[in-house]
């Protein structure tokens, strides 16, 4: 049974269907890169899968349990961990409180990114954009659940930390976590992914296993 099973997902905003029929499944231990041009519907798909945007049609299941209409907090209980694109952490809480909220300690998080331990009593909003992303990824790694949905985790990170982030994803996958990775940074995505999907106008138009020639195939796909 797949960890995440999305079938015929339709989502969008009043009057505009942005995701027009998305099918995707993620097995335990698998990293799937969701790629696509700007406006292809990736972020909307993520919002629907994580539950912040209601699905208009289709179904979403986590580990076999239907969550199409479930609140995001229910999906969290079922093991979903989310890193969203904009402001992925609670700015008004301290770093430690951000972690405590998901039942993680600063020591756990410091294994991901050591700087978090010394900054733990700082208000998270005073971290820079990239540091906030790292906190969010470390938060997922500290209490990994079963399934990660990561929207542009490497955006705003310097190359060294992009690598660390990729490493954390691979470690989680090695322990059986399924990962959906939405990325603009194709290099990073294909570095860690087992499979890739390309979205265009709200649906998957191409997919495959990651291999040596993938980078070229995908780049061509995206450059249309």
């Amino acid at each position: 049974m797949p960890l995440l099973d999305v079938q015929g997902l339709v989502a969008g905003y009043a009057g505009a269907r942005i995701v027009t029929g998305l099918d995707l499944a993620i097995e335990p231990g698998e990293v799937v890169a969701l790629l696509g041009r700007n406006g292809a519907g990736k972020s909307t798909a993520v919002a629907a899968i994580t539950g912040t945007l209601p699905a208009m049609a289709g179904s979403i299941a986590i580990g076999g349990a239907d969550v199409t209409k479930a609140a995001p907090s229910r999906r969290f209980q079922l093991g979903m961990r989310t890193v969203r694109q904009d402001q992925p952490i609670l700015r008004d809480l301290t770093v430690a409180e951000n972690l405590r909220l998901v039942g993680a300690s600063k020591e756990d998080a410091a294994e991901g990114f050591p700087f978090l331990a010394e900054r733990s009593s700082q208000r998270a909003g005073t971290l820079s954009g990239g540091e906030q992303k790292m906190l969010a990824v470390a938060r997922a790694a500290a209490n990994p659940g079963l399934l990660w949905i990561l929207d542009e985790p490497s955006e705003g990170l310097q190359p060294k930390n992009v690598d660390r982030c990729a490493q954390l994803i691979r470690e989680a996958a090695a322990r059986g976590v399924g990962v959906l990775l939405v990325e603009q940074h194709i290099g990073m995505a294909l570095n860690v992914a087992d499979r890739w999907l390309v979205m265009e106008t709200g649906a998957v138009i191409d997919h495959g296993e990651v291999s040596a020639t993938t980078h070229e195939t995908v780049s061509r796909r995206l450059a249309v």
Binding site: S128, M134, K160
Partner: peptide, 9 residues
């Protein structure tokens, strides 16, 4: 340019 938190923004 600079590492995250370098103070660019």
């Amino acid at each position: 340019i600079g590492p995250n938190g370098a103070g660019k923004s």
